[in-house]
Amino acid sequence: MSNTVRFWLMVLPGTVFLVVFLLLPLIAIVVFSFWRTESYTLIQDWNLDNYATIFSHSAYLTFLARALVMATCVSLVCLAYAWPVAYFIVRYGGRYRLILLLSTAAPFLTGEILRVAALQQILGPIGVVNMALTRFGFDPIEALMYSNMATGTGLVYLWLPFMVLAIYLSLLNFDFALLDVAKITGAGPLRAFVEVTLPLNRAGTAIGIVLVFIPTLASATTSQFLGGPDGALYGNILARQFGSTGTWALGSAMGVVLFLASALALVIVWRAVGDLRRSGIVIKGAPKP
């Protein structure tokens, strides 16, 4: 039995599982997006009405645009924050690296709903910040809660660990001695960062951006509880199709649009990375110079 056969035998169970329970469902909603729903039943009646609905009603597009803006802002905030943090952990963390990293990831695993609840307790109208303000005779700050700002804070809170993790893993494989080389050859700290550190970690950073952008683009729970009456995002409207209204075909089409938007974001970010060799990544089997 050759190694290739062994390889495929070992990856087969998981591959079959993911094809059946991940890929086929995704294909299924693409199919259903061209059907229609009638009183909580899908009817096979090939048409483009669902897409026509999405693209002709400004409401859907507005929600999508809002989600795009929100996801972009959240990704940028996470990016700006995660870089110095990840850099610090890798550079100076020493033997505490692992615990410093895991500490950023632990809250992620407590789940979205409990973290939203915790944020409500802090930021909400009767949350500790506003309570403190009124106690000491100030006016409560309305924008803390039920605003896009609150949703954004919640999303950063939820997904920042992903960005830290991606940049951390990238920096872990970065040889910091190269910085010394850059400095000896005359580059200042900023120049060394721009010429050496950033390019060599561009791919890892891009992965971090995508890992944050995609789930925030689809976020529903955070905006539901923190966004207030005008804070609904695309994910909320999408969720509604599978809840009270039961318009599954339209919901499927909305899911497909969401998926395409995510894919587009992925492509754009990856295009921005450009030639992987310029990021110091060697592809196996590539011709040697």
Binding site: F21, L22, L24, P25, L26, A28, I29, F32, V210, L211, I214, P215, L217, A218, S219, A220, G235, L238, A239, F242, W248, G251, S252, G255, L258, F259, S262, L266
Partner: peptide
């Protein structure tokens, strides 16, 4: 790289 909500609804429909 797939939003959790998409995994949720697609597996529901499937």
């Amino acid at each position: 790289f797939i939003a959790p909500i998409l995994i949720g609804i697609s597996s529901l429909m499937f």
